[in-house]
């Protein structure tokens, strides 16, 4: 608590007991269309909410008091001031955490809604999974035709979001004299395969000399981009900062006959199969890193 002044804590406490809403009025009387829209959204087919004797679902209590897009009516200066104070202290995000409603009498179409609310409590500073902030609890009396219909206690957390660590960047390739040509090709969205100047064998990954004849002369051919999954693994653990397991790592056999390790994308990790046709694409991961990956083709992929 060292970086939050006692002064702020005292100012927050001083809001307890002050009005959050005075003589608020529901924007619409209780009505059948809003009840029906609610029931459709909730999938609630309770016959008590339809027909000439219909009541509103009791859990709609708060809905009748909502400001909607045009904003709240009757909200007190104190409540706005409290939220503003919390905003200024850096607690700019809000999430509802608790709702406690008691229903005194059913609401029916035609009921005119009014409400008053009081700021019941403002908590000490708390640290939650979401971040650090203060819980604000309000209690509202909801009336229909001036008569108490229900009470609604509501708690929100006004918080400063916990700083997620910036997304880690993928590891950089190690570029050296022997493989620089490969990475230059990737930069131009070309997957280059080495071809031996002696025996003509294709080789991948890049090496200074031919594994078949030992010749040091070589040139390159550009891969057509067609290939298939020769083998694969699914990475679950351990997670590395830049990666989001589980994901599939494929050993891709290119149409030219050489194999390359890369990600298989465009298909769920558990739907990757040996022999699956894939096609090369170049994926940009950040402003400086582009990598060749392989997208599973437009097969119907099991169709489950």
């Amino acid at each position: 608590m060292s970086d939050e002044s006692d002064e702020l804590a005292m100012r927050l406490k001083a809001f307890e007991g002050r009005a959050a809403a005075v003589a608020g009025a529901g924007k619409d009387p209780v009505n059948e269309p809003m009840i029906r829209h609610w029931c459709e959204a909730m999938g609630d087919t309770n016959p008590a909410y339809a027909g000439p004797e219909a009541i509103a679902p009791p859990t709609m209590l708060q809905a009748w008091t909502m400001g909607g897009l045009s904003g709240h009516t009757g909200r007190s200066g104190a409540y706005d001031e409290l939220l503003g104070l919390l905003d200024d202290a850096g607690y700019t995000s809000v999430v509802a955490t608790d709702c406690e409603q008691e229903y005194v009498r059913p609401l029916r179409p035609g009921d005119e809604i009014t409400f008053d609310a009081v700021i019941e409590s403002v908590s000490e500073r708390k640290t939650t999974k979401l971040g650090t902030g203060h819980f604000v609890t309000t209690r509202m009396d909801v009336r229909a035709g001036g008569e108490l219909a229900g009470t609604h206690r509501f708690r929100i957390l006004k918080y400063a979001p916990a700083r997620g660590k910036p997304k880690a960047r993928r590891p950089r390739p190690v570029v050296n004299r022997d493989n620089a040509g490969f990475w230059e090709g990737v930069g131009q969205h070309k997957l280059l395969i080495q071809r031996c100047g002696g025996c003509g064998s294709l080789r991948f990954p890049w090496l200074p000399g031919c594994g078949a004849c030992g010749c040091l002369e070589w040139d390159t051919v550009e891969a057509s981009g067609e290939g298939s999954v020769y083998s694969y693994v699914v990475m679950h653990h351990p997670p590395f900062p830049a990666f989001d397991p589980p994901y599939a790592v494929g050993l891709i056999e290119l149409a030219e006959g050489v194999r390359i390790v890369s990600n298989v994308v465009g298909v769920p990790y558990d739907k990757v199969r040996i022999g699956m046709p894939v096609r090369l694409q170049f994926e940009r991961y950040d402003e400086e890193l582009v990598l060749p990956v392989f997208r599973a083709g437009e097969t119907d992929g099991g169709g489950s």
């Binding site: 999430v95 509802a96 709702c99 406690e100 008691e102 229903y103």
Partner: peptide, 8 residues
């Protein structure tokens, strides 16, 4: 329904 009290 008489009372519904929930925590998220």
């Amino acid at each position: 329904l008489r009372k519904v009290a929930i925590r998220l």
